[in-house]
């Protein structure tokens, strides 16, 4: 039961603070594609890859007092902030596990907007396709986002940077 929770705790410990549920979802999905051993199952929802399992585990970690969830009310929506707590750090110290170092990946992902990470994760979802087909798919599944050619090129460049083996 605890191994997958502990992996997420390693992530929160390395990330310091995560702003936004969508950003959290997309970061874990992208890290999975960078061979980080997160096992949360993702499905394609209307706005990209999304994991119910991840959302459940995060809620459990909040209930356990290992991370905090702060709710910030913006003008027309609510944004959530996640941070590891002292109890969370204690738990990690007790629960030893081998996990690749993901600090560098997390730093790169943290700098990007959730809109951009949504684009990158959607591109990863179609990663078996040729690049032209990926672009066509992006416009098909996300017409309302109106991603520009520049953003898509930037996302391809980012994928090559974060995961050179792809």
């Amino acid at each position: 039961m605890l191994t997958n929770h502990a992996r997420l705790m390693q992530f929160f410990a390395a990330a310091n603070e995560i702003t936004g549920r969508k950003k959290l979802q997309k970061m874990i999905y992208i890290l999975q594609h960078c061979n980080m051993p997160f096992e949360e199952k993702y499905e394609f929802h209307f706005y990209g890859p999304y994991s119910e399992e991840l959302s459940l585990r995060v809620e459990e970690l909040c209930n356990l007092g290992f991370i905090t969830e702060e709710k910030e009310t913006k003008s027309n929506y609510v944004q959530y902030h996640y941070q590891i707590t002292g109890d969370g750090v204690d738990f990690l110290n007790q629960f030893h596990m081998d996990m690749p170092d993901m600090t560098e990946h997390i730093t790169l992902l943290q700098r990007k907007s959730s809109r951009f990470l949504e684009l990158v994760s959607t591109m990863y979802y179609f990663d078996g396709l040729p690049e032209d087909d990926i672009v066509r798919k992006i416009h098909t599944v996300k017409p309302k986002q109106k991603y520009t050619d520049w953003e898509i090129d930037e996302a391809f460049r980012f994928i090559r940077e974060i995961n050179p083996v792809q």
């Binding site: 549920r21 969508k22 929802h45 706005y47 999304y50 959302s55 929506y77």
Partner: peptide, 10 residues
Amino acid sequence: YRPGEDDERL
């Protein structure tokens, strides 16, 4: 659906 902080259910 909550704009901005959705869990992606329509």
